[in-house]
Design a protein around this nucleic acid. Structure first.
Lengths: 234, 234
DNA sequence: GAGTGGTCTAGACCACGGT
DNA sequence: CCGTGGTCTAGACCACTCA
């Protein structure tokens, strides 16, 4: 069984070393050979081995320290790259037609928890936007979004019929940093009505705060209709 | 404001180029200079630029093609690294004491959906394990797990009182590929009793299937007590 | 102090893929 | 065809950190 064509490419060497680690050649936490040693074993230069080992370190398979050498990571923490989906693409890639309806759009004081997550004082007015995302005409997700008009002054006049707020912001505001949470909530009366489900239904929910150079841009709380799954691979 | 000490390290050059992309020097989808050009601009070797651009490509900021050059990725998809938490560490890092109780352990035919997710025939017996994870004596998460005894023959006699099944498997089946899903479910009667919540409560749930060389190892469905959030940064 | 990883360089060859 | 990125090499210097 031929897992990876190797050759002396850093890819090949990375996979070869990975296979040896997986195969149990070294115990968890144990020191593995140095770069020079591997270079000799695979008849390649130390740089190539360096790249291979750096990649494994980046994946969390090994831990490296100067002078300390490279060791197999004691607890293999599974780490995954999670793609934050863009709703339109998500719907369309499932073969459904995407549309959205703006249910509400107004300037108002945010609830305390929202102000807190955006690191803003309680008396700072925000633009509040409620959007229903539809897949094939059926509710797919309901979004409550708050946008700071100080950071994004153009947002108030933006035309959001053709392009959703999410994509508008991505396009106009160079994104810098953000925090996100995933959780489950029970549908309240408004959510139940919007998504056409029974009150109390369990809804998969994503909260996101994004920042541009220490200024809060937007906070969104996105509730998916029941049945939704966020899939990824380990 | 000094965002990144640069120098001519690939880090520094990566951040410098990132800043120029974020700053809007090139449009979305536009071709940016070639490696040689950047090397001249930053007075460094092409290899260094190559590493920097490869890193940006790995992050999804740019797209590269031989002969096609490097271009700014049309849709900046926020991509995050999600650490799949190990429950014990998660509890302990919150300052609580961790413990677990095995509620059930038996060999049986799995439900159809479980067999399907593990790519197994319906008549393949699995070990079924139910574990309650506690934080400070209170229910924290409830886990239903199925393990394939063909792939992991030692599991049936494993002592799971000191070490949880999750950690036992990580230790004995060092590396594996897997798929995972996140979703929200309503507590059924059994879940409600286990987690001491009202039936119908929304529970944040993670499903995971892991594989070792084309053989299914285990499938788990993990339900967190209400209030749980999975946090990460973008 | 000495060993290990981290990095840079300059030159070289190759593979892919638009023109 | 030929320009672009992908990679390798050999040698070199540096920085961290353990003994």
């Amino acid at each position: 069984m031929n897992i990876a064509a190797q050759a002396t490419t850093h890819h090949g060497i990375r996979e070869a070393i990975r296979a040896r680690i997986v195969g149990g050649e070294w115990d968890l936490g144990e020191l593995i050979p140095g770069e020079a040693e591997f270079a000799a074993q695979y008849s390649c230069s130390r740089s190539t081995v360096n790249r291979a080992l750096q990649a494994l370190a980046h994946e969390g398979i090994v831990e490296r320290k100067r002078k300390g050498g490279t060791r197999v990571r004691p607890l293999q923490l599974p780490q995954a790259r999670l793609r934050i989906p863009i709703i339109r693409e998500e719907v369309q890639s499932a073969g459904q037609t995407y549309s959205h309806r703006i249910m509400r759009r107004e300037r108002q004081l945010p609830p305390g928890d929202v102000a807190q997550r955006m690191h803003l004082p309680d008396d700072h007015e925000l633009i509040h936007l409620q959007t229903l995302h539809l897949a094939g005409g059926e509710p797919f997700a309901f979004e409550r979004r708050w946008v700071d008009p100080v950071t994004v002054p153009d947002f108030e006049e933006a035309d959001l019929t053709a392009i959703s707020a999410n994509e508008w912001l991505i396009r106009m505001v160079p994104f810098s940093r953000g925090e996100a949470s995933l959780l489950a909530v029970s549908a309240d009366a408004e959510l139940a009505q919007m998504l056409k489900v029974a009150p109390g239904e369990a809804l998969f929910t994503m909260e996101r705060t994004t920042w541009f150079e220490e200024r809060s841009v937007t906070f969104t709380r996105l509730h998916y209709a029941p049945g939704y799954r966020l899939n990824f691979s380990l």
